[in-house]
Simulated assay, not measured.
Amino acid sequence: WEYGEEKASRRIAKAIVKARSETTISSTSQLAAIIHSVMPAKRYGQIDPATRSFQALRIYVNRELDELKSGLAASEAMLKPGGILAVVSFHSLEDRIVKRFLASRSQIASQPSRHRPPSNGPAPTFELLTRKALQAGDREREDNSRARSAKLRVAMRTDAPYPGQENALCA
């Protein structure tokens, strides 16, 4: 549910628990068959019903979302003013993390309302170079089918200190 955004996650989990009580699951094809058994048949053009479940397992095992958060924070600390941060995400969980990070570190976070006077919060550490995520065009998707879900977000590092930099300089 959390890492695969799978609507049928509880049904799939129950089927996996039941299958494990009967025998050991020892292959990915065996796991895929269990998932297929509780999902409606795949329609033309639809992704395989097991894709989200395998995505969730991969994200959990590799700690991919934690690694992404760490990488974004490290980029903020390592980039010099004028440095460009370009992040390609391949699913909504990753893109949501990148979008929220950049929003919280850019002028968007400093101006929560265009009707309210600007707040005196910390100076933005990034300037968004793309307001929305860039996506592959039709031609690129034809040439590279994996580009269909890719989203690119780009920001430039400002000269504002990153959160915690003041404490790091004093230590």
Rank of each mutant, 00 (worst) to 15 (best):
G4T: 02
E5Y: 00
I12M: 04
K14A: 15
A15R: 07
I16G: 03
S26G: 13
S27Y: 05
Q30K: 11
L31S: 00
A32Q: 05
K42V: 02
R43M: 09
Y44W: 13
G45Q: 04
G45K: 06
G45C: 07
G45H: 10
P49C: 10
R52L: 13
I59C: 00
R63E: 14
R63A: 12
E64W: 01
E67H: 11
L68M: 06
A73L: 11
A74P: 00
S75W: 08
P81A: 11
G83M: 10
I84S: 02
L85A: 02
L85R: 08
L85P: 02
L85W: 10
S89E: 00
S92H: 13
E94N: 00
F101W: 12
A103I: 15
S106E: 05
Q107W: 12
Q111L: 14
S113F: 10
H115W: 11
R116D: 10
P117H: 13
P118I: 10
S119V: 04
P124M: 09
T125G: 00
F126S: 07
L128P: 02
L134I: 08
R139G: 04
R141Q: 15
D143M: 14
N144Q: 06
S145E: 13
K151S: 02
R153M: 04
G164W: 09
Q165N: 05
E166V: 13
E166G: 10
A168P: 05
L169M: 09
